[in-house]
Write a protein that binds this DNA or RNA. Structure first.
Lengths: 211, 211
DNA sequence: TAGATTGTTAATCGATTAACAATC
DNA sequence: TAGATTGTTAATCGATTAACAATC
C-alpha cells in the first residue's frame, strides 16, 4: 500500500465512507452502486468512484460495490487491521474522557498507559489503568512498543513533550493541545483543535450559515 | 459583515491566524509583514494577503499589519465579540470534560445548562452547574435564549435530538456524535468526529506520513 | 445479449501561488 | 524621495464533476 500522493482531501473522506458502509453492512445490505451511495452520503457518484480508484478497483461493472468487501478494504487502507499501542499524556478531564469514551480497543488502539505531571493524580485508576508520573514516560514508551501518543496537556508543555516523544520513536501524535507541534517529518501529527472548531461554528452563526 | 461566498478553506484558517496573532500580541510585537508571518506559520505570504483581503484591507503598504488591530478584526469576523449562550447535552465523560476543560467563557460562550437522559446523573454538579434531565431541554432553551447546543451523546439519540433542537430555534450544533445530523440549512453544524480523526492518524502511520 | 455500472479520461471549477502596480 | 510591503490581477496548480468507453 504505497500509492503515494493520495491527496489529503481523499484521505479525509475515507472514514466517512467507512462509517456509511458499516451502517449498510449492519443493515444487511450486500451491494451498492456509486449512485445510491451518492444519494445517501450527499456527494457526487463521480467523486466516490474517483476516490476508490485511488486505491484500485473495488467495484464491478454492472453490479456496483460489494459492501462488506469494500468495508474491509477501506479498513485495510486506513490501517485498522493493525494493532497500535498508545499512551495518553495528560490525565485531566479530556485525557480521562478519551480513555473512557472512545472505544479505542474495538479499532485496535490499545491504551497502554496514562501519564500526568501532577503527583496528586498519579495512582488514580482510569478505565482500569493507574495514572503514572510523566517522569517514567520515556522508559515506558521504549519498553511497551508504543506507536501513538495522545497529547491532552496544556499548550505550555506540549511542544517540549512532543520533542521528547519524537526521540522515543513514537510514530504518531494525536494532538489536542492548542499549539502547532514541531517534530520531524516522519512523525504523523493529527491535530484536534477544539477551540478552532468552536470558532468556525461561531463564524457560521454570525455570517448566516452560507451553505 | 455579509461578504458571502468566503470559501470554507479560508474560514478554516482564520482561527490559526488568530492564535498566532494572539501569541505575537502577548509577546509585545506591534507589527508584522505577511512575509514574516508566512515564515512563522509556514504558509505562503500570498495566501495570507489573499485571505485577509477577503474581508477588506487590514494592512498598510510599506508597513505591514498592526498585530493588535488585525487580531481584533479577526475576532470580529469570527464573531468572538458576541456572547452566545450554550447548553451541553450529554453529561458523560466528554460532556463533563468539555464543560470543565474549554474556557468557554473567555471567548464569550456561556454554559447555561447541562443535560442528560440518565436520571442517576441528574443533580450532579459540574463546574457549578447542576445536571438536568433532558425532558426539560426544550423549555430551557426557549427560556434562556440558547444559541448553541453541544451534542455529546451517543449517535443513537443524536439525530432525533438534533431535530428537536432545530425546532427550538437553536442556531448552531457542535456535534461530537459519530453521525451526520440532518437539520435545516439555516442551522450551523460543526462536526468533531474524533474517530474519523484517529483513523486519519492511523492512515498516516501505515502509509508513511507522506508530507 | 442488453442493461447497468464501473474505471478512467477530459472538462470545469476553485484554490493557491506568483507577479507587480499602487501606495504608504 | 526611496524602500518596503500591501492589495490585486494573472498564472498555475489541484480537485471536482461530467462524460463515455470498457466490461461484467
Amino acid at each position: 500500500m504505497d500509492d503515494k500522493n493520495i491527496s489529503q482531501a481523499v484521505i479525509a473522506r475515507l472514514p466517512r465512507y467507512y462509517r456509511y458502509l458499516g451502517d449498510l453492512k449492519d443493515n444487511g445490505i450486500e451491494r451498492i452502486s456509486s449512485q445510491d451511495l451518492s444519494k445517501l452520503m450527499k456527494v457526487t457518484a463521480s467523486q466516490i468512484r474517483q476516490d476508490f480508484n485511488n486505491f484500485g478497483g473495488f467495484g464491478q461493472q454492472g453490479y456496483g460495490y460489494n459492501v462488506e468487501y469494500l468495508y474491509d478494504e477501506i479498513a485495510k487502507i486506513l490501517g485498522l487491521n493493525e494493532k497500535h499501542n498508545l499512551v495518553i499524556i495528560g490525565a485531566g478531564n479530556l485525557g480521562q474522557a478519551l480513555a473512557n469514551y472512545m472505544n479505542f480497543e474495538r479499532r485496535g488502539f490499545i491504551v497502554k498507559g496514562i501519564f500526568d505531571n501532577n503527583q496528586a493524580i498519579c495512582g488514580k485508576v482510569v478505565r482500569g489503568i493507574s495514572v503514572q508520573h510523566v517522569d517514567g514516560l520515556e522508559k515506558f514508551i521504549r519498553k511497551n512498543d508504543v506507536d501513538i501518543a495522545v497529547l491532552t496537556i496544556p499548550k505550555e508543555g506540549a511542544v517540549k513533550t512532543a520533542e521528547v516523544l519524537a526521540k522515543c520513536g513514537v510514530k504518531a501524535i494525536w494532538n489536542f493541545a492548542h499549539v502547532d507541534l514541531n517534530v520531524p517529518a516522519d512523525i504523523v501529527v493529527e491535530n484536534v483543535h477544539l477551540s478552532d472548531s468552536l470558532m468556525k461554528l461561531s463564524y457560521g452563526i454570525v455570517n448566516g450559515s452560507v451553505e
